[in-house]
Every structure is written in structure tokens, then in C-alpha cells.
Amino acid sequence: MPTPAQAIRHEYLRHNKKFPHVWCPGCGNGIVMGALLRAIHHLELSKDEVVLTSGIGCSGRMPTYLDFNTLHTTHGRALTFATGVKLANPALNVVAIMGDGDATAIGGNHFIHAARRNLNLTAIIINNSIYGMTGGQYSPTTPFGAISTTSVYGHIEHAFSIAELAVTAGASFVARSTVYHADLIDRLIEQAMQKRGFAVVEVISNCHVQYGRRNKLGGAVDMLKQFKEQAVTVSRAEKLSPEELEGKTTIGVLVDRELPVSTEEYKKVRRRAHESGDKV
């Protein structure tokens, strides 16, 4: 008898895809992938009704391994493809998997507009503060002062907070976790996929190979320990001063609000169009 974990792997991983995957040993991407599978399994969604889109980068390879309708698009554009899929067939559960550079540099415009537009989509952003696949160049979430292959003298720009960007841009649901808090990711993705409207889950992840190594943060386990130490729940964070929150990562649900969802609003547009008749 397979264990429950094995059963999920057997059910959702593509057995006809030549493994191994492209990720380095210890990469956080696998933890996020596991959480996504457990969330979908728990929600009892049909594999045929799930569409997974991704961009380019290490995160972009995730759909390749998963037995859903999978769409590995161009760099930064996962949400634009997801928008077309969702509007063309609103019955599908559409999830976009992106990295930090993918979602907030080259795809930054799409990201804020997807949040503003508020389609019924789920966006999962794996934030490892670096461009891993291309060899460790700085991304929009690389901290000030950090070393990367394009900031060997120290990074001089400031990092985005992806989750806060999504809140400001108007997403219905925004949450954050780290790869250390694997159980929390399961729950947040589940909530996000059930949410009516644009739902964002940011997962702080480790790229010990391209980021940790250069910034003396140790290996995968060391970085996970740091995530554990830096994490503060939303409820605890509310009681802390900005000074106390310096260097901390707030985890949990940042925003959960009811807003008009444009997938549903468009049904009203169609109704109005029908009522006014074809006068053109």
C-alpha cells in the first residue's frame, strides 16, 4: 500500500515525463509544488478542470511535471495567458505559478493589472530574491546591499514587497508564507483557490545555490531555519512596532475582502449587450 504522500505523488505527477526535474537539491520549489498538490487534492478538484500556467525561470518548469492542463508560457506573461484561458472558459480553475523576477520585473505590469482587474484567478509567487536559472542576477526582491552576479559590489536598489504590492493593486485575497511553513502553504493555496477574485500567495523560498551561497546564508537547511526565525504571524505583527518588524517576514492572510469579480461582472455586460440588441 502506498503512503498517503506517495498516493498523491502517483496521482498528480506525470509518470510519462522523464524525471529528474531541473531543480537543485534542497530547492524550495518542490515544497511549493507539494503544497499545491495537497491543496488541489483536498479540494477534490478534477484534474481536467485545473489549468496551471507558468512563466520562465525555475518556477516556470513546475507545470511540466504535473498532470493537469499545463501551459508553460513566456517570461513574465503567465497571468496574461491565464486571463485569456479564464475568460474563454470560466469553469476552469486557473492557477499561475511565477517567480519574483517573472512576476514583478518583466511581468510587473501584468501582475498589478491582474490584481486590479480582479479575475477569478490564483497567483502563486515563489520569491527566492534572485534570478536562479540565469545564474544569480539581482531581481526586484533582492535586498539592498546583497551580492548577486550583477551586483558584486553590493545591491544599490530596494526590494519590492510582493504581497503588499498585490494588496495595494486591489487583489481580493493576499497571503504570504515561507517554504519552512509548509503546512501553512497548503492552507493558503487552498483558501486562495476557493476565493472568488484574484488571489495571491507569496511564498518566500530559498535559492541557496545562487543567493544563499554568495550572501553567506548557508545551505538549504540554514536558510529554512532563518525563515523560521524571521517569520511573524499577521496577528503577532499587528502588536509589533515598525522597528520590531524590521527584518521580519509577516506570514498568514494579509487581505481577504469581497470585491466585484470581473469574470462575473462580464456576465452582466453580456446581459446588457443582449438587452440593448445588436444595433450596430
Partner: peptide, 19 residues
């Protein structure tokens, strides 16, 4: 959409969804 890059992405997505 927010630009023509996004427009093409959406058009491809919709076509892949059968429309």
C-alpha cells in the same frame, strides 16, 4: 489589456481554451 504583450498572451490563452 494593459499592453499589447498582454493582449497576445490573452488571445493565445483563449484560443488554447478552444475559442
Amino acid at each position: 489589456m494593459e499592453d499589447e504583450i498582454a493582449s497576445m498572451g490573452a488571445v493565445i490563452g483563449a484560443s488554447l481554451a478552444g475559442v
